[in-house]
Amino acid sequence: MQVIFDFLRKISGGKLTQKQVSAANQVIANTTGSMVANMLGIAVDEISVSNQGVDLICDFEGKRLAAYDDGVGVWTIGFGTTIYPNGIKVKKGDTCTLDQAKLYMAHDLKKFEQAVNGAVNIPLNQNQFDALVSLAYNIGTGAFNKSTLVKKLNAGDIRGAAYQFDVWINAGGKRMQGLVNRRAREKALFLS
Results as ranks from 00 to 15, higher is better:
residue 3 V to I: 15
residue 6 D to H: 08
residue 9 R to K: 15
residue 10 K to M: 14
residue 10 K to N: 14
residue 13 G to L: 05
residue 18 Q to H: 07
residue 18 Q to A: 13
residue 18 Q to T: 11
residue 19 K to F: 12
residue 19 K to P: 01
residue 20 Q to N: 05
residue 20 Q to E: 14
residue 23 A to E: 14
residue 28 I to V: 12
residue 31 T to P: 00
residue 31 T to W: 11
residue 32 T to E: 03
residue 32 T to P: 04
residue 37 A to E: 15
residue 38 N to Y: 14
residue 40 L to Y: 12
residue 43 A to E: 15
residue 45 D to M: 12
residue 45 D to C: 05
residue 46 E to M: 09
residue 47 I to L: 15
residue 48 S to F: 06
residue 51 N to H: 09
residue 53 G to Y: 03
residue 54 V to H: 01
residue 58 C to E: 15
residue 58 C to V: 13
residue 60 F to H: 10
residue 62 G to M: 05
residue 63 K to S: 09
residue 64 R to E: 06
residue 64 R to K: 15
residue 66 A to Q: 13
residue 67 A to G: 04
residue 69 D to T: 07
residue 70 D to G: 01
residue 70 D to R: 04
residue 71 G to Y: 02
residue 71 G to Q: 01
residue 74 V to Y: 08
residue 75 W to F: 10
residue 75 W to T: 00
residue 75 W to I: 02
residue 80 G to R: 03
residue 82 T to E: 02
residue 83 I to N: 06
residue 83 I to D: 02
residue 83 I to W: 02
residue 84 Y to K: 14
residue 85 P to F: 01
residue 86 N to C: 06
residue 88 I to L: 10
residue 88 I to D: 12
residue 90 V to Q: 00
residue 94 D to L: 00
residue 95 T to H: 10
residue 97 T to H: 01
residue 98 L to D: 13
residue 98 L to A: 13
residue 102 K to H: 04
residue 106 A to I: 04
residue 107 H to R: 05
residue 109 L to N: 01
residue 111 K to T: 13
residue 111 K to Y: 07
residue 113 E to Y: 06
residue 115 A to N: 13
residue 117 N to Y: 06
residue 118 G to K: 06
residue 118 G to I: 12
residue 119 A to L: 02
residue 120 V to C: 08
residue 124 L to Y: 01
residue 127 N to V: 10
residue 127 N to Q: 15
residue 129 F to D: 03
residue 130 D to A: 08
residue 132 L to A: 05
residue 132 L to C: 02
residue 132 L to V: 03
residue 132 L to N: 02
residue 133 V to Y: 03
residue 135 L to T: 03
residue 137 Y to K: 09
residue 139 I to F: 09
residue 142 G to Q: 11
residue 144 F to N: 08
residue 144 F to G: 06
residue 145 N to E: 14
residue 149 L to K: 08
residue 150 V to E: 11
residue 152 K to A: 11
residue 153 L to T: 04
residue 154 N to K: 02
residue 155 A to V: 03
residue 156 G to S: 09
residue 159 R to D: 12
residue 162 A to Q: 02
residue 163 Y to I: 08
residue 163 Y to Q: 15
residue 168 W to N: 01
residue 168 W to G: 00
residue 169 I to F: 05
residue 170 N to F: 05
residue 173 G to V: 12
residue 176 M to H: 09
residue 178 G to N: 02
residue 179 L to P: 00
residue 182 R to K: 10
residue 182 R to L: 07
residue 188 A to L: 13
residue 188 A to C: 05
residue 190 F to C: 04
